Amino acid sequence: MSQLSDMSTNYWKNAKQQGLPFTMDPRVLYRGYFANTLNNAGCVMTQFFLNGAIKNALTGGVPRELSNSEKIGAAVGSGVLSSVVASPLELMMVQQQVKGTGLLETAVSLIKGGPVLARGMIGMMGREGIFCGCYLGIMPVVREHIRANYPDGMGKSDDSARLFATFVAGPIGSFCSHPPDTFKTCLQGDIEGNKYKGYASTYRTLVAERGITSLWAGMPWRVFRQFCAIFLFDKINTDLAPLIFPHAFKK
């Protein structure tokens, strides 16, 4: 349902980054819907799994509290690694948005292209590493700090602490992850390399044409979605995970 309601903002963000015209035509706004749904479901699922696996590797399976740097490092690592799964799917979505081709046609074309499947993956790793580091790393660290130090104020409950922590992790995630996302979108939208050939040339082209602020083009379309996602993902990870995997949360 979230993809159904948010897909238009995804298109507007990608279009702004690439300098494409604004549109309200639903036939354009919902291009790549199924690829995007698979991407978001697979990406988040992979990040939660990898975050747990990396944490387990850090502790060697021995029950102990991780340091704040370990929590954030594990989150960043899970975001970077998840991009191997997510980047090809996002490439498929962006290509559908730009060219208006169908899911199967786009997939076959990209698979035949071979190495083109990895186009924009480094940018994706940067984006997801930062974003995942915020919602699975910085977010719980800040929330726990608020709960411990402000029990009678903003830390009086998990949800109140979570809300205030969102206003710390959210801006960091949105602002810092957007430039790599812009590079990724431009490279994936132009797989032929007619305008955006590589990361350095993409940076030079964007800055020359629209100034340094172009690196954050379309960011307002991401901000609200990311704030909601960071809050909800942290709540799910805190409240739902112990119910599904009670053995992993035994003292």
Rank of each mutant, 00 (worst) to 15 (best):
D190Q: 13
M154T: 09
S214Y: 02
C134K: 04
E209L: 08
N194G: 14
W221A: 15
A229D: 07
M139F: 04
G120Q: 04
P180A: 05
N194C: 07
D152R: 12
P171N: 06
M125I: 09
D158M: 12
R162S: 09
R147M: 15
Y196N: 05
Y199F: 12
Q188M: 14
I230E: 04
G218W: 00
R210Q: 12
I130T: 04
E192V: 10
D158G: 13
Y150Q: 10
V141A: 14
R147Q: 15
R162P: 00
G211I: 05
R162K: 09
E128T: 12
C134T: 12
P220N: 10
L206N: 02
A200R: 13
Y199S: 12
V142Q: 10
T185V: 15
C186D: 03
Y203G: 03
L206P: 00
D234T: 06
G133R: 01
Y199W: 13
D234P: 07
I138A: 07
C134A: 14
S174R: 00
D158C: 10
K156V: 05
E144R: 04
R162A: 09
A229C: 13
I191R: 02
E144T: 03
I138R: 04
A165P: 02
A200D: 14
M125H: 09
E192G: 11
N194D: 09
A165K: 00
F164Q: 05
C176F: 08
D234S: 14
G193F: 04
T202E: 07
Y150D: 11
Y203E: 04
I172R: 00
G133D: 02
G211P: 02
R210I: 11
C186I: 00
D159T: 08
S177H: 02
V168R: 01
E128P: 00
T202V: 14
M124I: 15
P180K: 07
I146Q: 03
M154W: 07
I122H: 02
C228R: 06
D190Y: 13
I172M: 08
F233P: 06
T166R: 01
L206T: 08
I230F: 15
S201Y: 07
F131G: 07
M124W: 04
G173C: 08
F233H: 15
E128G: 10
T205G: 01
I146T: 10
T185A: 10
K197E: 14
F164C: 07
P151D: 10
D234V: 06
K195F: 06
C134M: 15
F233W: 13
Y199V: 05
G170R: 01
A169Y: 06
R127K: 12
H178D: 05
L136T: 01
R127V: 13
D234W: 08
K184C: 07
S160D: 04
Q226T: 13
Y199H: 12
K195H: 11
